[in-house]
């Protein structure tokens, strides 16, 4: 049985059995949850379906959040992506998907928390882009969510996936690290390369604060789902190119925990610091909830 207490354990066990991390996780969870592998796969397939629906619904140009502060940007981004932009249509379409799911969440749409509602756009943007561009098959993408989930379980146990505890690095940072690991697996990389991608994604978001305007999961959460997506791809690309993280993933997770604990309370989801207390942040809050 796996303890999900270190990334190293996942790599070691996968290598011993000459299998992908997703395969050993599915087998292990099947034993631990006393359900067949097929049942667990089907349940994950349902989550994948909800992710695809959220991408599609979120593209609606008329979509607006309950507060009225956000919505409609995914449609703009998708249109722009057709031009190729600076980075090519693949990355720009991935960006539009991250916005779509996050905007749909803010509009009370149905999403899969991955690992949280605030960071729900990153994994769908990454894996659905891989399927749509023909880089992997749908069932491979569904399987890769077991790898993402396993990396997330280690982070949740050893650090945190809650913004109130660890800041945004714990939410979007974790989602990005999970996505980076599963992108490597989808591209045919080794378990070690997944671990390096995870490490690099964490390193790139270490210290990211949680400072939501008006306490809502909108500003800047939606756009941080975009940076999380882009960092997931850049980290996966580096790992696949053979670049290694000098600091191992497990130590990066320890650093994330330590940094999270050092963040002042005002920067951990309380909306008492950062962007939330900028003049415009306060103005937007008053626009939604009225002046105090």
């Amino acid at each position: 049985m796996l303890s999900y207490e270190s990334i190293n354990e996942l790599c070691q066990k996968a290598n011993e059995q000459n299998k992908k991390i997703s395969e050993i996780v599915l087998s292990d969870e099947s034993i631990q949850m006393e359900q067949t592998k097929q049942e667990l796969f089907n349940r994950m397939a349902e989550s994948f379906k909800i992710m695809c629906q959220a991408v599609n619904e979120g593209k609606n140009p008329n979509l607006r959040s309950t507060s009225g502060l956000t919505g409609g940007d995914a449609a703009k981004m998708e249109k722009y992506a057709q031009t190729g932009g600076l980075c090519g249509s693949f990355l720009n379409l991935a960006i539009s998907k991250a916005i779509a799911v996050s905007e749909y969440n803010a509009a009370m749409g149905k999403i899969v928390a991955a690992p949280t509602a605030g960071s729900c756009g990153i994994l769908p943007a990454c894996i659905i882009s891989m399927v749509e561009s023909g880089k992997c098959k749908e069932n491979e993408a569904i399987m890769s969510l077991f790898t993402a989930g396993a990396f997330g379980m280690v982070i949740a146990q050893k650090a945190s996936v809650a913004g109130a505890e660890g800041g945004c690095q714990a939410e979007c940072g974790s989602a990005s690290a999970m996505a980076a690991a599963c992108l490597v697996e989808l591209a045919g990389g080794t378990p070690e390369q997944s671990a390096h991608a995870c490490a690099m994604a964490i390193k790139n978001q270490l210290g990211l604060v949680c400072d939501p305007v008006a306490g809502l999961v909108e500003i800047p959460c939606i756009k941080r789902n975009v940076s999380g997506t882009v960092i997931a791809f850049s980290s996966a690309e580096m790992a696949l190119a053979g670049i290694e993280s000098k600091i191992p993933a497990d130590e990066c997770i320890m650093a994330m925990k330590q940094v999270g604990a050092s963040l002042p309370c005002s920067l951990r989801e309380t909306s008492q610091g950062g962007l939330a207390i900028t003049p415009t942040g306060i103005k937007l809050k008053e626009q939604v909830f009225g002046a105090k």
Binding site: Y4, V25, E29, Q32, M33, L40, R43, M44, E46, S47, I50, S65, T66, Y104, N105, A106, A107, M108, G109, K110, I111, V112, A113, A114, P115, T116, A117, G118, C120, L123, L145, F146, A148, G149, A150, G152, M153, A156, Q157, V161, M178, L216, V217, E218
Partner: peptide, 21 residues
């Protein structure tokens, strides 16, 4: 904890504490 606590829950947004809870 299992893998569906991380990839999940499936919920109506925007907030797990303020909406789903």
């Amino acid at each position: 904890m299992n893998v569906f606590d991380i990839i999940g829950p499936i919920m109506i947004g925007p907030s797990s504490s303020h909406t789903a809870g």
